Amino acid sequence: MPAGNRSKVYVIKTDDRAKGVNLLLKYFSLDALSGKRVAIKANFNSADPFPASTHLDTLSAIIDALKDNAAGIVMPERSGMGITRVVLREMGVTDLAKKQGFDIVILDELKSGDWIKENPEGSHWARGFLFPRVFKEADAIVQTCCLKTHRFGGNFTMSLKNSVGMVAKYDPDDGYNYMGELHSSKYQRLMIAEINTAYKSAFVIMDGIKAFSNGGPEAGKLIEPGIMIGSVDRVAIDATGVAVLRSFGTTPEISGGSVFQLEQIKRAADLGIGARGYNDMEIIPVNKDAEDICSGIEKELRREVQAKT
């Protein structure tokens, strides 16, 4: 792939979330969001503190930046380990929405007409999945995700896995349990990738100031990479996150082989969601302190290229 077409992944070494978000967002075209309705997907799967959930400072900084451009901001959410409305209240999101003037949509409370059936070609979902109309009708979708492992079959939960919180748990017409299907399937990681065909990202911000290197999604071994990462490409940003976890020591499911052969990432790449390998990516340090980290990420991602030569 020509260098100019590579998916750029920006990495900043920082423990200041507002500074990190603002510096990363300089690399994305926020002017393109002017006058548009923007939907943001955060990670509030449970009422457990960061890195189990999106840090409120990260969400606040992103909302502040969007407010200068977007005509309106909505945050649809569905928690997997708790009642969504309660989780958002306990995590301070409800108060933040009132303070910063953005809307919250509780996906669990949507009716039949609020969903659109998605069934991508070659899907491993038995009957497709339901995707919210509120995301489909947004002019742009942005995402902020955490950096962590997932012990319930996803293996890791970053940008691609965060998209699971967009899908209906139950069909409001017949009660079909989509999450029951997902979590009981041997194709779970492929199905996670397939959800991502339903939308495109304006950009993704990953908060890796702290992370879980095993366990997850709500608790695990805490590590402190001290970084934030930004990209338009969900595959590239997840591959970068996996490389970071490997540098700290992580689970056997994540550690072995090429990053781009891990099922979530490979399936997403095969579906055209993002980069297909290291040669499709460019890792860019935003500040000098991130240079060594980026070198380590590149070294890990190059393993597959070196194995083929």
Rank of each mutant, 00 (worst) to 15 (best):
P252G: 10
P225Q: 04
I229E: 00
A236K: 09
T251K: 09
A243Q: 09
G230E: 06
M228W: 15
T251M: 00
T251Y: 15
L222A: 07
P217F: 11
V244F: 01
D233Q: 13
G249W: 07
G220S: 08
A239S: 09
D233M: 03
A219E: 12
E253W: 02
P252W: 03
P252S: 14
I223A: 11
G226Q: 07
I223Q: 01
A219G: 14
E253T: 09
K221A: 15
A219P: 12
I227Y: 01
V235I: 10
I254S: 08
G226R: 04
R234H: 14
P225V: 09
E224R: 12
N214F: 13
L222P: 11
R246H: 01
A243F: 10
G226L: 01
E253P: 10
R234D: 07
A243Y: 06
V242G: 13
V244R: 11
R246M: 10
P252M: 09
K221E: 15
G249L: 00
I227S: 02
I229S: 02
E253C: 02
I229G: 04
A219Y: 12
S231W: 02
V242P: 01
T251C: 05
G216W: 06
I229W: 00
G241Q: 06
I223T: 06
T251W: 10
G230W: 11
R246S: 07
S247D: 15
P252N: 11
I237P: 07
S213Y: 01
E224I: 05
P225M: 08
L245N: 00
E218D: 15
R234V: 06
A243H: 14
S255A: 15
G230R: 02
N214I: 15
A239P: 11
A219T: 10
G215I: 07
M228K: 09
I229C: 08
L222H: 07
A239M: 03
V232G: 09
G220M: 11
P217V: 12
A243L: 00
R246W: 14
T240R: 03
L245V: 07
G215V: 07
V242F: 05
F212I: 12
G220V: 03
D233G: 06
P217D: 01
D233N: 05
S231G: 12
P252K: 05
V235R: 05
A236P: 02
V235M: 05
K221L: 15
I227D: 00
V244A: 09
P217A: 12
N214T: 07
N214Q: 15
I229L: 03
R246I: 15
G241C: 12
I237G: 08
D238W: 05
V242I: 13
G241P: 06
S231M: 04
I237C: 05
P217W: 13
I237N: 03
T250E: 05
D238R: 04
I254A: 13
S255G: 11
D238Q: 13
A243G: 12
T250P: 09
G249K: 04
I227N: 02
L222R: 14
S255R: 10
G220L: 08
G215K: 14
G215C: 14
G249S: 10
L245I: 10
D233W: 05
